[in-house]
């Protein structure tokens, strides 16, 4: 793999893609730790962009640092009407509305399959209310997820999820309530739709969160100029993709400056190992890859190999991650 370039050209991108072999025997040199859980490399998948049944044909999911599942709610959710996606330069606007078959189905089917495949599993927890979150966390407590990620930041479900994630008082109350319900490391996934991330992060830490992941999507929308109407049936959606990468880095950086100890998973527009490396320099312990995995199912694994090679040349950073510290 070539060393970091200032700009990833389409040619270089295509070259890396065609040179990547999902059938190779992987050897990881640089593991990381997130809230005491060892990841074999610092790259995981972001919730909503990973589906085991869809990607198991393309690569060995146990080779990733971790996988974060689609949000799991107490009962099945139908999600939002279609259209659910609109393209935008270097990104997309999506409004799926956390369609999922519910926690009971998840525990019976998805989680056992992921564990049987050897994956390090982060179960993403969704809810419309504090009671919803508490119910799912309780049900997950005795099962074999490695970590939980509390999604208080989806912009596409009824206001509760987002408002909890933007209100430090409500958020601290929720995290405090969930904390005694499980021994599993609890990550809280934060929204960027706030003016200052630090009071939000502080609320999570004071409530007992073991780690933070950031960022979820930005609220956005597109119009169809032929009809004058919004493209998405839900009117607004969440913006993700490389277009959010610089903002995501700033959120991680600000949080790290304010809170030197809390483990952080950086998320936002990672398309290459270099993009992931930037998050590590911003202070993240690990990253989750989202949009890239929709354009190429093996992208998270390819990015992990690219990052592994980049860390070979950065022994101090690699050493810090291995010891559970950050840059």
């Amino acid at each position: 793999m070539s060393e970091a370039t200032e700009t990833m050209t389409p040619e270089l991108d295509a070259e890396r893609r065609s040179n990547f072999d999902a059938n190779q025997k992987f050897t990881w040199h640089h593991k990381t730790q997130v809230a005491g859980v060892e990841w074999k490399n610092p790259v995981g998948t972001a919730s909503g962009t990973f589906n085991f049944d869809a990607v198991k044909w393309f690569y060995d999911v146990s080779q990733l640092g971790a996988v974060s599942t689609k949000g799991v709610s107490p009962v099945p959710w139908e999600g939002n009407p279609v259209p659910r996606t609109a393209e935008t330069p270097a990104g997309s606007v999506n409004s799926v509305g956390l369609q999922n078959p519910g926690v009971d189905y998840y525990l019976e089917h998805d989680l056992p399959a992921l564990k049987a495949a050897g994956a390090t599993v982060i179960t993403n927890v969704a809810g419309h209310s504090d009671d919803d979150y508490a119910e799912v966390v309780s049900k997950l407590a005795d099962h074999e997820s490695d970590m939980l990620e509390i999604n208080v930041s989806c912009p596409n479900v009824s206001a509760d999820g987002l408002s909890t994630g933007t209100d430090p008082v409500a958020l601290k109350r929720l995290v405090k309530r969930l904390r005694p319900l499980t021994d599993k490391p609890m990550i809280v996934k934060l929204t960027p739709n706030v003016t200052d991330i630090r009071p939000i992060a502080e609320a999570c830490i004071e409530g007992g969160a073991d780690a933070l992941s950031m960022i979820n999507t930005f609220v956005g929308m597109r119009f169809d100029i032929r009809t004058g109407k919004p493209i998405l049936a839900n009117i607004t959606g969440g913006v993700s993709g490389p277009c959010v990468h610089p903002m995501a880095l700033a959120f991680v950086y600000k949080t790290r400056q304010a809170f030197p100890e809390i483990p952080i998973i950086g998320i936002g527009g990672i398309m290459t190992g270099e993009d992931a490396l930037e998050f590590l320099y911003a202070g993240a312990n690990a990253v989750e890859v989202g949009s890239a995995a929709l354009g190429d199912p093996v992208a998270p694994l390819r990015i992990a190999t690219e990052l592994d090679a980049l860390l070979d040349k950065r022994p101090e950073l690699a050493q810090a991650l291995e010891e559970g510290r950050t840059w």
Partner: peptide, 27 residues
């Protein structure tokens, strides 16, 4: 035909309502 985000069953944007439930057009 459907507006798709991935085409292989991950993103759940191309849903269709059927007598078997909400299914994905792509997979």
């Amino acid at each position: 035909e459907a507006r798709m985000g991935c085409g292989f069953g991950t993103c759940v944007v191309c849903t269709v309502h059927t007598t078997r439930g909400i299914l994905k057009t792509c997979v």
